[in-house]
Design a protein around this nucleic acid. Structure first.
Length: 276
DNA sequence: AACAGGTCCTGCGGGC
DNA sequence: TGCCCGCAGGACCTGT
């Protein structure tokens, strides 16, 4: 479900409700997520306080200002179908509401994830000490991400540019929706070999990635089925999608029929006349 | 019944 | 031979 804009929307939505609050109760209804909820999850959290939320790639990071057992962070990933939102005492958990953190003002941070591809894990040390976070590429909205990087890392690579753009060691946070959209905006055929794209065209692609992610964050993310922000609202970027999910329909630029192909096991929609 | 927003692992083939 | 890389395919799970 969530790519970078949805995770960032979640972070912004829940932050005002959880930062600085003490966790008074932790409830784990289903510990078997992609990574099992740690055995000492509850004892680690109860009585601790939540610091300033951060995001790295599609991971949400919740600093835990621990007491006896020491400080650390929760690393929370929403997988394909996860969402974190604020509930109130008395809001009964629904099916697939796997984890609750009950806060000292009665708010509840509630994790919902039907497919259970997401997880919440405890990280005792620095972010670099977690292998999941250590080898990530740069944030797409940071200075470290630019065309020169895309160009350099792609030389000699025969894989299609779309899966290349979705490689977390190249740049983080770009999933199937926004990779498709950025390639449309840049006018690049998603099937083109990554190593055979010029620096000039990567300039357009890097700009398109930044543009589409920033616009999606502004719109509160993309809601395809069930994504909701931390406060329960859907995202409105779906109305702005040019290609994702629109195969068989007309291109918004040339009105030609959008085509569907599979690249790296993922559906990929593009306009054969606008994307070369 | 196929397909869905994401990672993680295995295995193969090729180059050194 | 052995090791590393790039890449493809499958696995994980439930809902529609």
């Amino acid at each position: 479900m969530p790519e970078l804009p949805e995770v960032e929307t979640t972070r912004r939505g829940i932050a005002p409700h959880v930062e600085g609050r003490e966790i008074v109760e932790a409830i784990v209804r289903q510990p078997l997520l992609r990574v099992p909820v740690p055995d000492d999850f509850i004892e680690r959290l109860v009585g601790s306080r939540i610091g300033t939320l951060a995001r790295r790639a599609k991971y949400l990071l919740l600093p835990i200002e621990g007491r006896g057992k020491g400080a650390g962070s929760l690393v929370w990933h929403l997988g394909m179908s996860g969402s974190l939102r604020i509930a109130r005492l008395g809001d009964l958990p629904k099916k697939h509401d796997h984890v609750d953190l009950v806060l000292d003002d009665g708010a509840i941070l509630r994790y919902h994830d039907p497919r259970r591809f997401g997880f919440v894990d405890w990280l005792a040390g620095s972010l670099e000490s977690d292998p999941r976070l250590a080898n990530l590429g740069p944030e797409p909205l940071s200075e470290a991400f630019d065309a020169e990087r895309l160009y350099r890392l792609s030389r000699g690579r025969r894989m299609a540019v779309k899966p290349f753009l979705m490689d977390n060691t190249v740049v983080v946070g770009v999933g199937n929706i926004y990779a498709s959209e950025a390639l449309f905006l840049a006018g690049i055929d998603p099937r083109r070999a990554a190593g055979r794209i010029s620096l000039e065209r990567y300039e357009r692609l890097a700009a398109a990635v930044r543009e589409v992610l920033a616009a999606a964050i502004t719109q509160g993310g993309t809601t395809l089925r069930d994504f909701v922000s931390g406060t329960g609202e859907p995202g409105y970027f779906k109305q702005r999608l040019n290609v994702y999910g629109r195969h068989g329909q007309g291109c918004r630029r040339c009105n030609g029929e959008l085509r569907l192909v599979t690249l790296g096991q993922r559906a990929s929609v593009f306009c054969p006349s606008c994307q070369k």
